[in-house]
C-alpha cells in the first residue's frame, strides 16, 4: 500500500516586505520520512517550515500539504488542516503562567469544540488527564503534569511544546531549530526523542537544523537551503563535505575552489 507524500512544494516563492525569502523552492516529504532542513542563519528555514505548517501563504508556486492546498480551503477547513500539523516553535510559545497540562491540552484547541474548550482547559476529566499524562510520559516528563510552566527549565519547556504537538494527534510533525540553544549531548537527546516520537506515532518529521553531522545521524534526507534557494536535496548518506562547505560559505567565498 502506498501513501501519498505528506508535503509537496512546487516552485514556491515568498517575499516579505519586498525582500525575497524563498525562491523557487521545490521539495517533497514522503510518508514517515525524516527530513532535515540545513542552512546558515537567514537562509529562510523558519519561513519554509511555516509554509509547510500552513501558517504562511507563499506568493507563488504550489503547496500541497497532507493532500490539500491550504490556501484554497475555506477557513474552517484550513483550521482543520492546521490541527493535523504539529509545529514545535523555536521559542516554544507556551503560556508561562498556566500549568503544564493546560499548555499540553491547548494542543486540541484546534478541534471543533466551542464552549467545551473552556471545560477542557479548566476542569479536565480523568480520562483526559490520563491522555495528557500519557503524552508527557512519552516525552519523559510525566511527573510535571501539574507544575507551573514558568518554573520549568528550557529543556523541559521544549518537551512541553513537543507534548502539545503530540497531543494534537498530528499527521505531520515540524520542529523549528529544536537544538538551537542546547549543548551537544542534549542536542543528541532531543533529536533522538523527536525521531523516536515520529517513529512511534508513524509521522513524517521535518526539522530545521544548523548541525550537519547531527542531521546526517538522525534523518533520512537533508535539504540545503541558502539565500532562499534549495542548494541540494539528497539522502543523508550521500551528502559530501564539499556540499556542506558550499552551504555554509561566507558571502563572497562561494566561488573559491577548494
Amino acid at each position: 500500500m502506498s501513501f501519498p507524500p505528506a508535503c509537496v512544494l512546487g516552485k514556491v516563492g515568498l517575499k516579505i516586505d519586498g525582500r525575497p525569502i524563498l525562491e523557487a523552492v521545490s521539495l517533497q516529504v514522503g510518508p514517515m520520512e525524516r527530513v532535515a532542513i540545513l542552512g546558515p542563519s537567514g537562509a529562510g528555514k523558519t519561513t519554509l517550515l511555516r509554509v509547510l505548517g500552513a501558517s504562511l501563504a507563499p506568493d507563488q508556486g504550489a503547496v500541497q500539504i497532507l493532500d490539500k492546498n491550504p490556501w484554497q480551503l475555506k477557513s474552517h477547513h484550513l483550521r482543520e488542516l492546521r490541527s493535523q500539523i504539529g509545529f514545535v516553535p523555536q521559542d516554544h510559545a507556551l503560556v508561562p503562567n498556566l500549568r503544564v497540562w493546560q499548555n499540553v491540552a491547548a494542543g486540541r484547541l484546534g478541534r471543533a469544540g466551542g464552549l467545551r474548550h473552556l471545560r477542557r482547559m479548566t476542569l479536565p476529566r480523568a480520562q483526559e488527564l490520563r491522555a495528557l499524562h500519557g503524552v508527557l510520559e512519552q516525552v519523559g516528563i510525566g511527573d510535571l503534569l501539574f507544575a507551573t510552566t514558568s518554573t520549568l527549565s528550557g529543556g523541559e519547556q521544549q518537551r512541553v511544546a513537543i507534548a502539545r504537538s503530540l497531543y494534537q494527534e498530528p499527521a505531520l510533525l515540524l520542529a523549528d531549530e529544536p537544538v538551537a540553544s542546547v549543548d551537544p549531548t542534549r542536542a543528541e537527546q532531543v533529536m533522538a526523542l523527536l525521531v523516536r516520537l515520529a517513529d512511534e506515532n508513524r509521522l513524517p518529521l521535518v526539522v530545521s537544523l544548523h548541525d550537519v553531522a547531527l542531521a546526517q545521524r538522525h534523518t533520512d534526507r537533508v535539504i540545503g537551503l541558502r539565500g532562499g534557494r534549495v542548494l541540494f536535496n539528497l539522502p543523508s548518506k550521500e551528502l559530501s563535505a564539499t556540499k556542506c562547505e558550499e552551504l555554509y560559505a561566507l558571502p563572497g567565498q562561494e566561488e573559491t575552489p577548494r
Binding site: H133, L145, F146, T148
Partner: peptide
C-alpha cells in the same frame, strides 16, 4: 489515576 491524583494534590 492514583498517581495523577497524587501529582495534583502535591502541586504548588
Amino acid at each position: 489515576d492514583k498517581r495523577i491524583a497524587e501529582l495534583r494534590r502535591t502541586r504548588s
